[in-house]
Nucleic acid binder design. Structure first.
Lengths: 242, 242
DNA sequence: CGGGGCTCCCTTACGTTGTAAGTCGGACTG
DNA sequence: CAGTCCGACTTACAACGTAAGGGAGCCCCG
């Protein structure tokens, strides 16, 4: 039987750093961040690592597994507020505030990858994006439990919190990488004889929309996030005290 | 120059219904609903329509355009509450309640397609999923305006409402089609000598998780939706009156 | 010291995908 | 009846994911 994977291949005989699952995943994240998910191809990823596509299969169980690993790696960067970040006085509100902002950081640092985190089916049905790792959920529940929540309150908070994060951050990350993803060239006008319905023209039939267009374009995502988070905390507080 | 597309090809000389953009899109929706987005292939879609894949390109500008059309078609099924569905007495709260439930219907009727609605970049940056059509947004804003909202209140409500819907419905639709999507065969155990980390085993290090596992598995999505919606309405009411 | 076995990567190959380009029969228009 | 054009088919190609096997270097054990 094979030994359980040496885990330390010592020094590689060549100059290249040597492939690792971690290195592959990290490069994949980079590729997604810079060129979008569609550009994440086994061959292209191999090229970035100076390696043939097939070599990746020694460390990764196919493309699906790679995407899963990418999601897991990103979710694992979420830091659960420990005693270091929080004053002992601070309660669960501060705990959730800090956590929410760290997940937001994740979403804004990787806007192209966040849809992946949001939509890939987690391993267990009760793992809800974007808090979809055993470690994070355990720490979340423990964090609330140790700050006064009972079991069912903690579970309910997990559900509300994930819904909140998902809705806000998915929209925010979509705005972030709005034009990055298609990566299309300017598309030089083409034939001008067919009047392709431009955004401007089709707006004509929607007076309210035209009037509020500039208001709709304004970006208040940060304020909205803070406000909605604040309201969620208030709401949880209400449910706590009844 | 070509006439601007007859739009009515009259009777087709063959027995087949004849291709139409609408028919293509409808079949694509069906295919996604039954076999998942990954199964939506130009060739497979063509096969369902008894047509070669390339024939679709007369009506559809490639796969991306098809997906866009699918999303648009689904979003267009959203009904904005009109005078028919609402008593004249009912205010904006009833308006939003009815609308929210109709979007929820859409999500639950097409769980496999909802991630598409949620994550594809809308045409305009201020169109937010899942309310991402000019018609729907116009009606939304008008609906609130005619029920007492001023411009900026209506816009703010649009943002809160979309975030709320997106977070809740994406999670709910993911639960809905949890095992439908992969569509994998039972995967007959394979070699038993390597102990692949089962969900059970890896849970060992997470005591809180194991304890709350059954609570986490329970499905309260409907109650949560209603409650969160109720709270959103309360929150909007607060912002209205200040 | 030498050979067997390993780890790690490469090579080749196959089926499937999206789609560019050209073909061609029938039906309508003049 | 000739011309035009619509609407599907045919062919073709590059890029994709991945199955299968090969071979170079290193290590361990005799």
């Amino acid at each position: 039987m094979p030994s359980p994977r040496p885990e330390v291949p010592s020094a590689n005989h060549t100059d290249r750093p040597g492939l690792t699952r971690a290195r592959i995943v990290a490069t994949a994240v980079d590729l997604i961040d810079t060129e979008g998910v569609a550009a994440l191809t086994m061959r292209r990823l191999g090229a970035r690592l100076d390696v043939e596509a097939m070599s990746l299969y020694r460390y990764v169980n196919g493309r699906e597994d790679l995407l899963e690993a990418v999601v897991d790696a990103l979710v694992d960067t979420i830091e659960i507020p420990g005693p270091g970040q929080l004053q002992p006085i601070d309660g669960w509100q501060a705990f959730l505030q800090v956590l929410a902002h760290d997940v937001r950081r994740l979403a804004l640092e990787h806007p192209a990858a966040f849809p992946l985190i949001a939509t890939r089916h987690p391993a267990a049905p009760w793992l809800r994006p974007p808090l979809r790792s055993l470690r994070v959920v355990e720490a979340f529940l423990d964090g609330l439990r140790s700050r006064g929540f009972n079991d069912s309150q903690a579970v309910a908070a997990y559900r509300s919190f994930t819904s909140f994060l998902l809705g806000h951050l998915l929209l925010e990350s979509a705005m972030q990488g709005a034009d990055m993803s298609p990566a299309e060239e300017p598309l030089d006008e083409g034939d001008a004889d067919l009047p392709n319905q431009d955004a401007e023209l089709s707006l004509a039939e929607y007076p309210t929309l035209t009037r509020l267009r500039s208001a709709l374009t304004e970006d208040h995502t940060e304020d909205e996030f803070e406000q909605a988070l604040e309201h969620l905390l208030v709401r949880l507080d209400l449910e706590l005290s009844q």
